[in-house]
Design a binder for these strands. Sequence first.
DNA 1: CTGTAAAGC
DNA 2: GCTTTACAG
Length: 251
Amino acid sequence: MKHALISLLICWLFFTAHSCSVKHYGALQWPQVDKQEEVLCHSYYCFIYDTNHMQSRWLAYELAGEMTTGDARRSSRFFEDSLVLRGTANDDDYRGSGYDRGHLVPAGDMVFNDTAMRESFFYSNVSPQVPAFNRGIWKRLEENVRNYAQNLGMIYVVTGPVLDDDLPVIGGSNVSVPAYFYKAILVQNDSLNEAIAFLMPNERGEHRSLYRYSMTVSELERATGLNFFPQLGRRSTIEATVDTLFWQMYE
DNA sequence: CTGTAAAGC
DNA sequence: GCTTTACAG
């Protein structure tokens, strides 16, 4: 009890300079990673930052339905992330690049309080996205994910860029411009065990169904080299199948 | 902070 | 039309 109070005090003292150290997760487990790679966590999302590509390789968070309603005001600027000791990308990298600073954890998922909203504007949560993609089909996918959370209760989300070798770069920090972005989504409770993944090219989407870009989590794992939900175990059928009709029902 | 703009509801 | 996603000056 005493320790909890002390950490709350520390959290409060450093709140303006750092992200609050109190974490708000339930059973979140992040994607399996090499031992060399350091998983960093803010209050509402965890991530691994890839310094070669100057953006995160993945970000993982829990999204509950009630989180998607709130009125935290959207920040007008982005912030370098002090959790990343070797430094993140910055305003200059993106200025005049022709690319949007696209959120990976959507600001629209972080409206339930000001800490969450502010965290979503760290450069650890930003990748270069084609404007018509960010404001178009990627945004539509984000809205769908919020609907999943509202209709299913709580879901796990892992999202990020596909960081291949030899991508084009922008800015003085050489920020890679990904060719694809993905999301992996899992609902797991007493009555439901379902997962779905999306892999989308970083380009103006045609006016197609989102489910044209859907696949099993296993297929996305093969495409990205990541293991998204290690808590499911190696032989889980949840990752190996996808029921798009189920997910369409809960949009 | 103001103006502009595309996408999609 | 309005909102959300932004960028430029």
